[in-house]
Simulated assay, not measured.
Amino acid sequence: MALPLDDPDYALLWPVDVFRDEFGAVLASSDSQALELLCREAFASPELAERIVRDRSPENPWDDAFVTARELEARLDAIREQPQPRPYYHQRSGAKALAVPRLDLARRAFARLVADFDRNGYLDRAFEKDCADAPRDDPSFILEERLDVAELWPLRPDSWSEEIFYSLVEVFHDFVARPRTVERYHDWDNCGAHYGSYATKPGRALYLARVNAILERNGFNLRLAPDGEDAGRLVVATDDARDDLLERSIAADDTHADPVRHAIRLFRARDASRAEKRSAVVSLALVLENERGLLKQEFLSGDEGALFTIANQFAVRHQNVNQRPDYDDAYLDWIFWWYLATVELIRSLRQREAAQP
């Protein structure tokens, strides 16, 4: 019988992109037990994992441990993420957006998330398995080495300042790694599974998605950066269109890659000062200066000068008595995004040039 992927029990708990990448890696390993573990973790119901178990059963007349997995592979486009709950009555009846972030709720939700990751083996590579026969060392010592703060484990969210909360969000990103296999199951004293074959990339991707969801629903204007020089660090949130621009800019690999990535890191840092934002704009202005010939060639006559007039006359690139330093930070933000979009335009023009015979 075909997989009923429209059934709510087959809804995906993971982000689709994260699951696709990890499913491909696990399927390539030809390890049906690893596939079972992945499906138990990633889907709302264990039904899909149970089908994989039945596939490798001795009673299976076809003796094909991957028939379900191959069907899933062929129908990946039909998989759907579990939707967020629809708004409840008071939310539908005009409740206002959060005026301030809900720090208490976010801290407690984050502590539950870390406990869930720990229970599923995502912290075993960093902290070791807490086994009944061989208890692990106190994770507080590892956290203290990183953060210079003692007695952070077990997690006590009500005791965290906002800064400690943010630091813990970042440090656990560096610790998590997804276990792909169960090496053995230890019954004694409810010890449970001993995992192995840890993979950092899917662990961090899942962690990032879950943490960012907590921050978003509790009104924080911060997100863990998925890539760039500040990957795994909290940065100021942007809208989807600007997120796409940032991703393309960070992924680009050309002569301008390093200064552009450096500018992005400076600008979107959680605590970026006015001076750091100015430095980010200066880095982009230098990229544009190096491409001035192309800009003159492609823009209407004289239009490219407006890009540099702003940088030169508004106390961005230089400091002198003729400049205008008294402008709102919102204009600095506008200049950054304008310049970054122009760098992306230059890359597109260069690609077009390279494609011409």
Rank of each mutant, 00 (worst) to 15 (best):
A99R: 15
R112Q: 12
E291I: 14
S273F: 04
G94Q: 09
S348D: 06
L288A: 02
L224M: 07
G232C: 09
G203D: 00
P87F: 06
D9Q: 08
R178I: 07
P157D: 10
D9G: 08
E22R: 05
S249Y: 12
N218F: 15
E304F: 08
F336S: 00
H173Q: 02
V176E: 05
V260G: 01
Q313A: 01
L245E: 09
R270D: 03
L143S: 06
R324L: 03
W334R: 13
L246A: 10
R210D: 00
D258R: 04
A285H: 09
L245C: 10
S45T: 03
S30F: 14
M1K: 04
L113V: 11
E229S: 06
R178L: 15
S29D: 11
D333T: 03
A177L: 05
Q351Y: 06
A69V: 10
L168A: 08
N60C: 07
F267A: 03
E298I: 14
A241N: 10
H194S: 11
H186D: 14
Q297T: 09
H194V: 11
P83H: 03
L332H: 02
A106I: 09
T255R: 12
R223L: 04
F66H: 10
T342R: 12
L155P: 02
D244A: 11
K96C: 02
D254I: 09
Q313S: 01
G232D: 06
E50S: 06
L294H: 00
L340Q: 00
D253K: 12
E128G: 05
Y339L: 04
I335K: 03
F165A: 07
D130F: 14
V171H: 07
I250F: 15
L294Y: 06
L266S: 03
D239L: 05
E298S: 07
W62H: 14
D303M: 15
V169Q: 09
E41F: 01
S283G: 01
R108M: 13
A34F: 15
D158A: 04
D189M: 13
P325G: 03
N190H: 14
Y339G: 00
V321A: 15
F23Y: 01
R119E: 14
P8Y: 11
A42L: 08
I335Y: 02
V236W: 03
R223V: 02
F314Q: 03
V282F: 13
T309S: 08
P8G: 04
